[in-house]
Amino acid sequence: MRISPSLVPMLVVALVVLALYWPLMYLANIPVAQRALDTGAALPCQTAFECATQLRSPVLPSPQQLWNGFGNLMFPLNSPNAIPVNAAVTAFETVVGLLLAAVVGFFFAIGMVASRAFERALLPWIVASQTVPIIAIAPMLVVLLGQYGVQGWLPKAIIAAYIAFFPITIGVAKGLKSPDPMALDLMKTYNASHWQTYLKLRFPASVPYLFTAFKVAMTAALIGAIVAEISTISFQGIGKMLAENSRASDVVAMWVIMLSSAVLGILLVALVNWLERLLTPWRRTGGGAAIPAKQARLSRREGVG
């Protein structure tokens, strides 16, 4: 398999973490294993060192236990109790939440750019909304929405949107304000309408800011969706699995689900990155060394002009 050079630093970090994890795991588990042996528990091992990797409720699960746990929780792929289906549900809630947040965020951002009064009236409340603990507000929102028949995945998406709209609002507002005063003067010399100035200048200029905001908002929305699943009645989702296994004190499963949600976060942000590359082709810097050569050729032509 060919490994992209850009992945190497990331893999090095993974190896270092793994190398550190091993001794830490022994350090944490040996006393527990010793106590278990002392109380005469039935264990398939003789020494504390051996038992450290085989505890039913380890402080830190061994890599082998994680691997096995991963195998147990991943398959069958279409099982309603396995990670793939639940991760897909959470991902769906997250993405819908992000889109809802984008709509609300755009609305607030345009208002804030268009009117100082709007910004002054609303920004403190928008900030305040973000300091309310989501874990407290989620059940209440679900009760409220349930009153109007909104149930299932939608309340989770709305809660995800509740935390995700803030970075989008701020990012888009910054993007809409980003055009140079000269560019705004330029539009004025064309006698462009407000709408044209937004369409031809402010919106396109805000796209890079939008994607940066999306990356922050995506991780926030994922946390929102998971917290919403944990703190409300859920039948599906990563949060529901976490809540179940937490009640069952299955430490290994908790670790496996936690790591899976981290992977899900990486995948969702990667999706935003991919969309960014697709939709902002003018920012593509092309293939490494090709650029200086191209610029050299261009500046030679300049001399002729």
């Binding site: 140079d180 000269m182 560019a183 003067d185 330029l186 004025k188 010399t189 064309y190 006698n191 031809k200 200048l201 396109p204 200029a205 796209v207 902002t280 003018w282 920012r283």
Partner: peptide
């Protein structure tokens, strides 16, 4: 005159839109 688009204005910086070729 501005509304009749009587003049073109060239600024100190090119002020090109980076997303347009």
């Amino acid at each position: 005159a501005r509304k009749a688009r009587a003049y073109g204005y060239v600024f100190q910086a090119p002020t090109l839109m980076e997303w347009r070729n």
